[in-house]
Amino acid sequence: MSERSKDVVLLCGTMLARFLQWVCALAGGVVLLLIPIVILVRQDMVPGFGGPNRSDTIAASPSSVIAISVTLALILAALFHFFGKLRAIIVSVGEGDPFTPENAKRLNAMAWLFLGVKILTLLVAGLRLHLASLMDKGASDGNVLGFGLYDLDAVVIVIVLFILARIFRHGAAMREDLQGTV
C-alpha cells in the first residue's frame, strides 16, 4: 500500500487534476462575472465603457456575448466535474481498489461530460462566427465550422472512455465473483 501511495505518476495525476479543477473554478468565476458586466456596459452603466466608448463586440450583439459567456461557464463546470471524477479514480487506484462499480460510473459520466464539452465548444464556435460576421462581414465570409482531426480526437476519447467504463464494470463484477469464491 505504501508503495502505491508513493507512485509518482499517481501523485502527479492527482495534483494536476486538482490544479485543473482550480483553474476551471477560477475561469468559471471570471466568465460568470462577465455576464453582469456585459449587461451593465450594454445599458451604459459603466463609466468609460458606455456611449461612444462601448466595446464593439458587446455593441454588435450583447445577447451573443452573454450566450458565449453562459456556454463557457457550462463548459468549465463540466470540465470541473470531469477532473473531479478523474481525481477520484486516481485516488482509488492509489488505495489499491480501482475496479469498483463507482469507478465505472465515474468513467461513464466522464465520457458524457466530455461529449457535452465538445458539443458546447461547437456552440461557442458558432456564436463566435456569428459575432465575427456581425462585426466584420467581409472578413468572416470565408469562415466555416470545420470538422478537423482535433474533433476526431475528441470522438475517439469519448468512445475510449465509454469502453473503459464497460471494462471497469466488467472488472468490478469479476472482482465481486472472486471475493465470493472459497
Binding site: D177, Q179, G180, T181, V182
Partner: peptide
C-alpha cells in the same frame, strides 16, 4: 487449510463460487 471465515461463507450459503481444490 482454509480460513474459518472462508468456510463460514461456504457454510452459510454466501459463497458465489467454490474452487475444485477447495
Amino acid at each position: 487449510g482454509l480460513t474459518l471465515a472462508n468456510l463460514s461463507v461456504l457454510k452459510t450459503g454466501k459463497a458465489r463460487a467454490i474452487r475444485f481444490s477447495t
